[in-house]
Design a protein around this nucleic acid. Structure first.
Length: 480
RNA sequence: GCCGCUAUCGUCUAGGGGACAAGGACGCCACCCUUUCAAGGUGGAAACCACGAGUUCGAAUCUCGUUAGCGGCACCA
């Protein structure tokens, strides 16, 4: 689909280490970048955008990288860190000063706020008024940096945006997009602390790192013209741009932590599988040409194309993700599920036990976190509530009598297998004249303390004869 | 407020002028299976294709306008 001739495809994900973990929206963007790189035998790069020193969150970078790894989106290069490249950006900012595409600005934050307020009052877009643009050629501007420092004069460097004309580009997803230059702000490129803003850093890095396709969320669409102006000012070739739809909350606003769990680690802790998360994310905004819903990453790599990416922002639906996760759990074989559960539950259960119960669990759980509540009675004596134990239409005397028969009969059973436990169970039903559901539910509650469990006879087999009878006796004793 | 993007069942979407009285998936409801809960099977409700014009023999599909939603307008990314 690419018209570009044999260029090396290089994509990147550029997270900021300002949050608890990797954001699910970032995971979405990373996924598309990863898939597109793999599809084109290119490289997928991670770059940490840590130029905002005030918002850094300790440990964030490590967690982001770990999470990407867990998702299977392991970068081919990186992490590169913008904070380690600080001097580089300054050099390029100065180059722009020299060729007239940028200028020094000495305005104070207070003045800027004032200007913005005034603009807004007048119903104009809140932009910088170009005050320092006029002093571009004044002696002050030509001071070298050390002397400026002596003078204690703080400054920033701004992009000199042309007043006329328009800047347009072709987005791989949205087609032609254009903006009038007079509405583009003289963006700050270099902050007074010497760090670049996103806009400078992203362009310099994408160029230096030979990023061929800038694939990012739609929230960047309106700053793309600034970036293009920068590429032009440097006389650098443009990369391809693709602006992905933004994931949304159920109320349609941009997916945010206030309204939804957004950290990938949350989903990991809840027992979602990375394969399911990736698959679900892929179905948002993109459809498989054969309209498959469940498909592996390899399939997405094979079939992905930008022209099947939707332009509108999809709502992130946890319910559907959960369903899909269940599908993935059901697709696993018993060993795989047992292994997953073993490490997920921190070795709380014996691996052998997990292997035995995994086939019973498989079609009953949608998240790994649901397993424990279903099988904890295997390793823990149940608390039996008599009200639940004794069937509604029976009294305690009847229950006692029947339970006693159950115990006697099962004690005599030598072949402790699901099939024979089942057979004997049916015989007891006949003998007792209880309804099957009454009898079996009573046994279920007696051995597990629950009304909802994996299949009864299988559970009894796994529990073992001795333990089963033991629990039945305990229940019997409690009735009187 | 200004700029930009978007618009098909509640949600994710198929569709690209006639095959659409709009198909699939999740969710929901009913039934079947069943010792519980699930899973599975079958069926169902659910979209006047945002609205209004236009182009055309013919529009969900093309054009324009309106409306609505979202995004952006920081020495944040």
């Amino acid at each position: 689909m690419l018209e570009c001739k044999r260029i090396m495809v290089r994509t990147r994900i550029a997270p900021s280490p300002t949050g608890q973990d990797f954001h699910i929206g970032n995971a979405y963007t990373a996924l598309i970048n990863y898939i597109f790189a793999k599809q084109n035998k290119g490289r997928f790069i991670v770059r940490i955008e840590d130029t905002d020193r005030t918002r850094l969150v300790e440990g964030s970078e490590t967690r982001i990288l770990n999470t990407m790894n867990w998702l299977g989106l392991t970068p081919d290069e990186g992490p590169y860190r913008q904070s380690e490249r600080k001097e580089l950006y300054k050099k390029y900012a100065l180059e722009l000063i020299n060729n007239g595409h940028a200028y020094y600005c000495f305005c104070t934050p207070q003045r800027l706020t004032e200007v913005r307020n005034q603009m807004q009052k007048q119903g104009k877009p809140p932009m910088y008024d170009g005050f320092c643009k006029k002093i571009k050629n004044s002696p002050r501007a030509s001071l070298d940096e050390s002397r400026r420092g002596e003078a204690g004069q703080k400054y920033v460097i701004r992009l000199n945006v042309p007043d006329e004309g328009e800047t347009n580009f072709n987005d791989l997803i949205r087609g032609k997009v254009s903006f009038q230059n007079k509405l583009i702000d003289d963006q700050i490129l270099l902050k007074s602390d010497g760090f670049p803003t996103y806009h400078l850093a992203v362009v310099v890095d994408d160029y230096l790192m030979k990023i061929s396709h800038v694939i990012r969320a739609e929230e960047w669409l309106s700053s793309t013209p600034k970036h293009i102006l920068l590429y032009n000012a440097f006389k650098w070739p443009l990369p391809f741009f693709a602006h992905l739809p933004i994931l949304r909350n159920p109320d349609k606003s941009k997916l945010s932590k206030r309204k939804n769990p957004v950290w990938v680690s949350y989903y990991r802790e809840q027992g979602y599988l990375p394969e399911a998360i990736n698959n679900y994310l892929m179905t948002l905004g993109w459809t498989h040409p054969k309209q498959l819903t469940i498909f592996p990453l390899s399939e997405a790599i094979l079939e992905f194309s930008f022209d099947r990416v939707n332009k509108s922002g999809p709502i992130f639906d946890v319910v559907k993700l959960t369903w899909m996760n269940g599908e993935y759990i059901r697709m696993m074989n018993n060993e795989e599920l047992a292994d997953k559960l073993y490490s997920y539950m921190n070795k709380k259960f014996d691996r052998k036990l997990l292997l035995l119960v995994s086939s019973l669990l498989k079609q009953r759980i949608k998240k790994l976190s649901e397993a424990e509540g279903l099988i904890d009675f295997f390793i823990k004596k149940p608390d039996v509530d008599l009200k639940v134990l004794i069937p509604k239409k029976r009294d305690s005397q009847q229950a006692k009598k029947v339970l006693n028969e159950v115990i006697q009969d099962y004690m005599g059973l030598n072949n402790w297998s699901t099939a024979s436990i089942h057979d004997l169970g049916n015989k007891i039903v006949e003998k007792s004249r209880w309804k099957p559901v009454e009898l079996f539910q009573m046994i279920r509650v007696a051995i597990s303390g629950k009304t909802v469990t994996p299949p009864l006879f299988e559970s009894m087999e796994i529990l073992g004869k001795e333990e089963t009878i033991n629990r039945l006796e305990t229940a019997l004793r409690n009735i009187s």
